[in-house]
Amino acid sequence: MTDQQSFAPLWDTDDVAAFLKVPAKTIREWRHKEEGPRYSRLGKHVRYLPGDVMDWVRDQSRLDAA
């Protein structure tokens, strides 16, 4: 297996919004406020690693449970 095959596809804002079942506008607002999942900028494009989004969701659960 090559390094390229070991990576999951990157998600864009719409993918994250669909996964979290929130409007894409909410994802953009979280990004602007630095409150949402980690992301990367690839030129003018914003992309998310699915694992980072899932880690962020788990972290939110822990914060809400406290």
Rank of each mutant, 00 (worst) to 15 (best):
M1F: 08
M1S: 09
M1W: 06
T2L: 07
T2Y: 02
Q4P: 04
Q5P: 00
Q5T: 06
Q5I: 03
S6M: 12
F7A: 10
F7Q: 13
A8I: 06
P9I: 03
L10D: 04
W11S: 01
W11N: 01
D12F: 01
D12L: 00
T13G: 00
T13I: 05
D14S: 04
D14W: 01
D15L: 03
D15G: 03
V16Y: 01
A17N: 04
A17M: 02
A18F: 06
L20T: 10
K21S: 15
V22T: 07
V22H: 09
V22F: 07
V22I: 14
P23W: 04
A24K: 12
A24W: 08
T26R: 15
I27G: 07
R28V: 02
R28Q: 08
E29I: 11
W30F: 03
R31Y: 02
R31M: 11
R31N: 06
H32N: 01
K33H: 14
K33Q: 15
E34N: 09
P37W: 08
P37I: 00
P37K: 04
P37V: 11
P37D: 05
R38P: 12
R38H: 13
Y39T: 01
Y39M: 09
R41H: 11
L42D: 11
G43Y: 02
K44D: 14
H45E: 10
V46Y: 08
V46T: 14
V46C: 06
V46I: 15
R47H: 04
L49H: 13
L49T: 12
P50C: 08
P50K: 02
G51L: 15
G51M: 13
D52E: 12
D52P: 07
M54H: 14
M54C: 09
D55S: 13
D55K: 08
R58V: 10
R58S: 00
D59P: 00
Q60I: 05
Q60T: 13
Q60Y: 08
S61D: 05
R62F: 12
L63T: 06
L63E: 07
L63S: 07
A66M: 11
A66P: 08
A66D: 11
A66T: 06
